[in-house]
């Protein structure tokens, strides 16, 4: 479930990133790299689990599925926090700088 949430997050952010090109003001690439990196790593994890559990891997208990979904959503939230920090620190639109430094006439 965590893998699925991460893959969907990667697909959605990549589609939005592509649509917004060449404008890079929102730094959406950061989110794409985060989600794709995690998705690939969880894919490997899933393959190993499948090799161990077989078809049972695709029929998890409801409790495990809920926990994995909760984890997946938390991962999305964490990734968005990382993205927001990067966005505010790099400040491509100069919004934060504009708030901190007022121009004098």
């Amino acid at each position: 479930m965590t893998l699925l949430v991460s893959v969907f997050a990667a697909l959605i952010t990549t589609a939005i990133w592509y649509k917004r090109q060449p404008d890079n003001e929102m730094k959406l690439g950061v989110l794409c790299w985060l989600f794709w990196g995690a998705s690939l790593m969880w894919l490997v994890d899933a393959i190993f689990e499948y090799a161990e559990a077989g078809a049972e891997y695709f029929a998890p208990a409801l409790k495990d599925m809920a926990n994995d979904l909760f984890l997946g959503l938390s991962v999305v939230a964490l990734a968005m926090i990382i993205w927001l920090i990067v966005l505010l620190i790099t400040d491509p639109k100069g919004v934060v700088k504009g708030k901190l430094l007022k121009k004098k006439q």
């Binding site: 790299w33 985060l34 794709w36 990196g37 690939l40 790593m41 969880w42 991962v75």
Partner: peptide, 12 residues
Amino acid sequence: KLLWGGSALLAF
């Protein structure tokens, strides 16, 4: 970016 991104989320 792929390695750091994936590692950060997996660490969580």
